[in-house]
Amino acid sequence: SKIRITWGDKTWEWDGDDEEVWKRILEWARNLGDEELWRHVKEWVDK
């Protein structure tokens, strides 16, 4: 399956939905430097 994140007018996609993928997404969000996006992603990961 895919994980799709839409933020503003951008959309990103990742293949898979296991823990490793979420770790990569969390790292990606942090590297993007958008605090609010990172917080949202972290909330999803922690669920």
Results as ranks from 00 to 15, higher is better:
Val21Ala: 04
Arg39Tyr: 13
Glu35Trp: 05
Leu26Asp: 06
Trp14Ile: 04
Trp7Gly: 00
Arg39Asn: 15
Glu36Cys: 03
Glu27Thr: 09
Glu35Met: 08
Asp9Ala: 05
Trp38His: 14
Val45Lys: 09
Ile3His: 05
Trp22Asp: 03
Gly16Ser: 10
Lys2Asp: 07
Val21Glu: 02
Trp38Met: 15
Trp44Asn: 01
Val21Thr: 14
Asp46Trp: 02
Val45Phe: 15
Trp7Lys: 03
Gly16Leu: 11
Val45Ile: 08
Ile5Tyr: 07
Ser1Val: 14
Asp18Met: 09
Glu36Thr: 07
Glu43Leu: 04
Val45Glu: 11
Glu27Ala: 11
Trp14Val: 03
Trp44Met: 13
Ala29Pro: 00
Trp12Glu: 04
Asp34Asn: 12
Gly33Asp: 11
Trp7Ile: 14
Gly16Arg: 13
Glu19Cys: 03
Thr6Gln: 10
Ile25His: 00
Trp22Asn: 05
Leu37Pro: 01
Glu36Arg: 06
Trp44Ser: 02
Leu26Lys: 08
Leu37Arg: 00
Lys47Asn: 14
Glu27Asp: 12
Trp38Glu: 13
Gly8Val: 03
Arg30Leu: 13
Ile3Met: 02
Lys10Tyr: 10
Lys10Leu: 11
Ile25Thr: 01
Gly16Pro: 08
Ile3Thr: 03
Trp14Gln: 00
Val41Phe: 03
Gly8Arg: 10
Ile5His: 01
Gly33Thr: 05
Glu27Gln: 14
Val21Gly: 03
Glu36Gly: 04
Val21Ile: 10
Glu13Tyr: 09
Gly16Phe: 10
Gly8Asp: 07
Thr6Asn: 08
Asp17Lys: 10
Glu36Pro: 06
Lys2Leu: 13
Asp15His: 11
Asp17Cys: 04
Ser1Arg: 12
Trp38Thr: 12
Asp9Met: 02
Arg24Phe: 07
Trp22Leu: 09
Glu36Phe: 04
Ile25Pro: 00
Trp22Gln: 06
Trp14Phe: 12
Trp38Gly: 05
Lys10Asp: 11
Lys47Gly: 14
Glu19Val: 14
Trp44Val: 14
Asp9Val: 03
Ser1Asn: 12
Ser1Leu: 12
Val21Pro: 04
Glu36Asp: 12
Gly16Asp: 11
Trp44Lys: 02
Arg39Ser: 12
Glu19Gly: 11
Glu13Cys: 02
Leu26Ala: 07
Asp9Pro: 03
Asp46Asn: 03
Lys23Asp: 15
Glu20His: 15
Lys2Gln: 10
Gly16Lys: 13
Thr11Arg: 04
Ile25Arg: 00
Lys47Gln: 15
Glu27Arg: 03
Lys47Glu: 13
Arg24Cys: 05
Asp46Thr: 03
Trp14Tyr: 03
Lys42Met: 14
Trp44Gln: 09
Trp28Pro: 00
Leu32Ala: 13
Trp28Val: 02
Asn31Thr: 14
Thr6Cys: 03
Lys47Ser: 15
Asp34Gly: 05
Trp14Cys: 02
Val41Thr: 01
Thr11Ala: 07
Asp15Asn: 11
Arg24Asn: 14
Trp38Leu: 15
Glu20Trp: 08
Thr11Cys: 12
Trp22Ser: 05
Lys23Ser: 11
Glu13Leu: 04
Glu27Gly: 04
Trp12Arg: 03
Gly33Phe: 06
Lys2His: 12
Glu19Phe: 11
Trp22Val: 07
Asp34Cys: 03
Trp28Arg: 00
Asp18Gln: 08
Lys47Trp: 03
